[in-house]
Design a protein around this nucleic acid. Sequence first.
DNA 1: AACGGGCCCAACCGCCCGAGG
DNA 2: GCCTCGGGCGGTTGGGCCCGT
Length: 320
Amino acid sequence: MGRPPCCDKVGVKKGPWTPEEDLMLVSYIQEHGAGNWRAVPTNTGLMRCSKSCRLRWTNYLRPGIKRGNFTEQEEKLIVHLQALLGNRWAAIASYLPERTDNDIKNYWNTHLKKKLKKMQAAGGGEDGGAASEGGGGRGDGDGGGKSVKAAAPKGQWERRLQTDIHTARQALRDALSLDHPDPSPATAATPAGSSAAYASSADNIARLLQGWMRPGGGGGGNGKGPEASGSTSTTATTQQQPQCSGEGAASASASASQSGAAAAATAQTPECSTETSKMATGGGAGGPAPAFSMLESWLLDDGGMGLMDVVPLGDPSEFF
DNA sequence: AACGGGCCCAACCGCCCGAGG
DNA sequence: GCCTCGGGCGGTTGGGCCCGT
């Protein structure tokens, strides 16, 4: 039958989140960890749908998120992964741990789609298989992941993946070998000057928490916007690390992203790792699915192209 | 300086899947 | 084995911002 909505429509606040709400959410997750979203609104007093809370956390507040300024490497990676995986943004996001699926999706829809179209119009497009858009390239049309799933069971999907893989492999190689001046674009390609431009969510949280943790500091940031970002925040994220709950590890990766140690995602203590991977997968922007890691290493192992440098994946040895 | 159009992004919506009872 | 619930994912939309005229 018709499933009732995830939350009562009445009395549920919608629209942009206020700093206060962010603060409430973050402080709750600080204490209890991410998960059990159903309980979040009731426990925090937020007049928000549980889904809304989850989304806000995963897409904006979660530490370790890089916003804006997609590097060329990231761009290419997205294009080719899209060609490979279709509109499975969560899967794509798992290769770009600092990006959310929503972000990637937005970027695709606003930038890359047009870019590819232009390239195609300009005559064939160097991206070959990446031209998945619209009516046809990828068979399923742009129904995206859903139609992929709907049209083909997983086995079939994987089979088709294998057929595409050759093309993808070549394309990926082309893309990644074009230019890799910076080994870790996640950080290096972030212009130092612009780092403040897209103050990371960690910064936002740090600001919020700085105010929150100090007695009387409540009310948090006046404006979640990056424009409010000062230079104060880099340490706060690490300071605020609680025990090894999900966001603790996540903020580890946040600070990692700031220090350029992208691989920190894997440098968790063992007891953290499960929680972290849970978080990661939960956010859709985290831990690579084992199958994909294997696939990826297969894709890349012979070239030594250093995607591992480009994309901080989980330790492949975990899966072998 | 004002207006209009286009672009970008945060958030919402609906569907699907897996887990638990 | 079935049903319900919670979580996750992808598509879409609306508001705000920016740029050009």
